[in-house]
Amino acid sequence: MLKDKYKDQIAALFAKYPPERKRSAVMPLLYLAQEEYGYCSEDAMREVADLCGMDPTEVKSVVGFYTMYYEHKVGKYVIDVCDDLPCVLRGADKFVNYCEQKLGIKAGETTPDGKITLNVVMCLAACDRAPMCQVNTDYHYDLTPDKFDKLVKELRSK
């Protein structure tokens, strides 16, 4: 259970908000749950609801609303490539084609070994350095097929 394993971390999260406003911690707690379980499972959402004094359906509505919470299992590494207008002007569309070809999956899918999920996402606020992507939370800029090959090799070896 999160509340036993991450007791201090959870207490520190709640301390950021007024004591009667535990609900404010729902988003950081969902991140914690997602890191622990890999995605926001229904059990995880119930745990978070219990911690914040919320109804589980309310937590589920939060998970459903925000794009960064996963309701199903994803790869160990999630590669999010932005393909909005400014990025495509700098070649992001062709870059996504290359990513799909290299990984042998379509955007939105996970490699059969469960290692890498490829997504195309809305703006990541790095339009000046497109094509770009995030691997889990880290930014990678000015990407080329060569750089992507190296990145994938590195992720596969981890």
Binding site: R21, S24, M27, V62, F65, Y66, M68, Y69
Partner: peptide, 26 residues
Amino acid sequence: YVHLGAGAYICGEESALLESLEGRIG
């Protein structure tokens, strides 16, 4: 304190941002 959103353009609208900070959908 730093508070992280979770992927929603609408939270750049100030009152939606407050809703999100209060733990609700933005």
